[in-house]
Amino acid sequence: MGHNDHIDFDLHELIQDLIDEGELEENSDAHGVARQVIHQGYDSLSPKQRTLYDAVVVPALKRRGEEVEMIQRMNSAPD
């Protein structure tokens, strides 16, 4: 088992997209908690960290997912 086996690369990319788009502030507490989830999993969070992740990161990820879905629908719609 390598040192990268526990890293969630998909979540890492999504979090980076949120930062790039201004949805999540780099080096903020929420970003730090998201990085912990990427590297150690959600279960590694304390109750306070879970509250922050659920209140800030999860809604931002949901909005991003809805935006991507809308773009995909628009791109696949017949002309």
Score class of each variant (00 low, 15 high):
residue 1 M to Y: 03
residue 1 M to Q: 02
residue 1 M to P: 00
residue 1 M to L: 04
residue 3 H to L: 13
residue 4 N to A: 13
residue 4 N to I: 07
residue 4 N to P: 02
residue 4 N to Y: 14
residue 6 H to Y: 10
residue 6 H to E: 08
residue 6 H to V: 06
residue 6 H to A: 12
residue 7 I to V: 15
residue 8 D to F: 03
residue 8 D to M: 03
residue 8 D to I: 04
residue 8 D to T: 04
residue 8 D to K: 00
residue 8 D to P: 02
residue 11 L to V: 11
residue 11 L to W: 01
residue 11 L to C: 06
residue 12 H to E: 14
residue 12 H to C: 08
residue 12 H to P: 00
residue 12 H to L: 13
residue 13 E to C: 00
residue 14 L to D: 01
residue 14 L to G: 03
residue 14 L to T: 00
residue 15 I to N: 07
residue 16 Q to H: 06
residue 16 Q to L: 12
residue 17 D to M: 08
residue 17 D to K: 13
residue 18 L to N: 05
residue 18 L to P: 04
residue 18 L to T: 04
residue 19 I to V: 15
residue 22 G to L: 06
residue 22 G to F: 09
residue 23 E to M: 12
residue 23 E to I: 05
residue 23 E to Y: 10
residue 23 E to A: 15
residue 23 E to W: 06
residue 25 E to D: 11
residue 25 E to V: 15
residue 25 E to R: 12
residue 25 E to H: 11
residue 26 E to G: 11
residue 26 E to L: 14
residue 26 E to I: 10
residue 27 N to M: 10
residue 27 N to T: 11
residue 28 S to F: 05
residue 28 S to L: 12
residue 28 S to K: 08
residue 28 S to V: 11
residue 30 A to M: 08
residue 30 A to K: 07
residue 30 A to S: 15
residue 32 G to Q: 08
residue 32 G to V: 07
residue 32 G to C: 03
residue 32 G to D: 13
residue 33 V to W: 03
residue 35 R to D: 00
residue 36 Q to D: 04
residue 36 Q to H: 11
residue 36 Q to A: 04
residue 36 Q to S: 08
residue 38 I to L: 01
residue 39 H to P: 01
residue 39 H to A: 11
residue 41 G to K: 08
residue 41 G to D: 05
residue 42 Y to I: 10
residue 42 Y to V: 10
residue 43 D to L: 01
residue 43 D to R: 02
residue 44 S to E: 07
residue 44 S to H: 08
residue 44 S to N: 05
residue 45 L to M: 05
residue 46 S to Q: 09
residue 46 S to K: 14
residue 47 P to H: 08
residue 47 P to I: 11
residue 48 K to P: 02
residue 48 K to Q: 14
residue 49 Q to S: 09
residue 49 Q to V: 05
residue 50 R to C: 14
residue 50 R to Y: 13
residue 52 L to D: 05
residue 52 L to N: 13
residue 52 L to Q: 12
residue 52 L to W: 06
residue 53 Y to L: 07
residue 53 Y to D: 09
residue 54 D to W: 13
residue 55 A to I: 09
residue 55 A to T: 14
residue 55 A to F: 10
residue 55 A to D: 15
residue 55 A to E: 15
residue 56 V to C: 09
residue 57 V to Q: 03
residue 57 V to H: 06
residue 58 V to G: 07
residue 58 V to W: 10
residue 59 P to S: 10
residue 59 P to Q: 10
residue 59 P to D: 05
residue 60 A to E: 03
residue 62 K to Y: 13
residue 62 K to Q: 14
residue 63 R to G: 03
residue 64 R to M: 08
residue 64 R to E: 01
residue 64 R to D: 04
residue 64 R to S: 07
residue 67 E to S: 00
residue 68 V to P: 03
residue 68 V to D: 00
residue 69 E to K: 12
residue 69 E to S: 01
residue 72 Q to N: 01
residue 73 R to Y: 05
residue 74 M to W: 13
residue 74 M to V: 13
residue 75 N to H: 09
residue 76 S to V: 04
residue 79 D to V: 11
residue 79 D to M: 09
